[in-house]
Design a protein around this nucleic acid. Structure first.
Lengths: 217, 217
DNA sequence: GCTTTCTGTGAAGTGGAATTCACAAGGCTG
DNA sequence: CAGCCTTGTGAATTCCACTTCACAGAAAGC
């Protein structure tokens, strides 16, 4: 999944030069010479990152940013400021930019800023924390929930103990889900064939109880 | 899903008469003339409920119950006691029976006890609380989680707001998950086309945050 | 008015999850 | 040792959540 980047600048040469640098680094780039057309295009293809010049005829970067952020709060924005002053930088960040680079800038300055912004984006996308996905996908199945519950209540259990406790006739079905839980590190198996909750698994069971309380009343 | 009931009694006539009453009420019944064979059979087909006579040659009901409960704690047991005395009743409950009926008993007494026990069973099986199942099945999907999160952060949103916010190109996909959330009562739609979290949905989001914290560290 | 965007339905297809089936290597027990 | 129970594996199949596609009325913009 290659990242899509918008470059918005009224200066044709600068715009093309930025686009070329980015394309050489295997980003997918779309260029616009004013904010209005960039906004319109964003309705068709939402970018991951927008690089926008502060000073432009018509809508400037400062006006453009809030409009874009309102529609797509997840889009990262790097502003290009004409002169490197503290005031400029502060104003840029205040209007919602995530980073800025001052003209004139070097190739590497640009790339560093771009990479950092995209990294932040990737990080934020997770949002709900690592491990959450696997956890919830395990919990979406009744049998797996029952296994976790049983292990939590009864402590370590052997394979057939679990199977009978759940009153499931086909032991291979239990095996399937048990393997799944092992893969996701919620259940571990000791050398003596006993299954037990991992610390992670215990946390999940606790959390489940919390959720359950919260919902039921 | 018809319930499976074991009838364990050495008295052939009584056994058959109980079995007939239950079968006429659309329960699935297996009869045994002693505790040993019932135990053995339980390894093949685990019953939901066992009706067992206290006084039998060989293993009596009092000895039988702990053995069965140990293997299958979820099985409900109704004991038949010969004489209706407080002592008998207390002893029966102590050994693990869930209910008892005193000989002689009427058809309806039996049925009431059976129905009550099975109701209790159904109740206990839920364990994790009503609403939990739907909740978790919703949460198992990333898009649905994102929708809940978006609504939680931004308040009411319209259909296309959500679609664009999630940066999903196919709006029908969003629609699908939104409908799912509506069906499960986590999201409601107002007359003015705005979607919003239901109280239930808000609880889920809160709970999710808790879970997330718990897991991540 | 016409066109585009919004909001949605329903059918058909796809892929992965879950189930079932066939089989088998230890281990324990009589 | 013969025979069961335990604890698996892997392939075949079924099932279902999700996606995609084709279409369409309502609302909004020009």
């Amino acid at each position: 999944m290659s990242e899509h980047i918008y470059v918005v600048d009224d200066d044709h040469d600068l715009r093309e030069s930025i686009a070329e640098i980015l394309e050489n680094n295997h980003y997918q780039v779309s260029s616009f010479e004013n904010a209005e057309s960039a906004l319109q295009a964003s309705k068709l293809v939402v970018p991951s990152l927008v690089i926008v010049d502060n000073m432009m005829p018509g809508m400037g970067g400062m006006a453009f940013i809030p409009l874009l952020k309102k529609e797509y709060p997840n889009v990262k924005i790097i502003m290009i400021t004409a002169f490197s002053t503290v005031d400029n930088a502060v104003a840029a960040m205040k209007s919602g930019a995530d980073d800025y680079i001052a003209k004139p800038f070097k190739r590497d300055e640009l790339l560093v800023a771009v990479r950092r912004s995209l990294e932040e984006l990737k990080f934020e996308k997770q949002m709900i924390g690592p491990g959450m996905d696997e956890a919830l996908s395990c919990l979406s199945n009744q049998i797996r929930r029952d296994i976790l519950l049983a292990l939590s209540q009864k402590g370590d259990m052997r394979f057939m103990d679990i199977t009978r406790h759940l009153e499931i006739s086909d032991h291979t079905k239990v095996n399937f889900h048990l393997k799944n839980l092992k893969t996701n590190n919620l259940v571990s198996q000791k050398r003596d064939k006993f299954y037990r909750l991992t610390p992670q698994g215990e946390k999940i069971v606790d959390g489940l109880a919390l959720l359950s309380n919260k919902i039921s009343h």
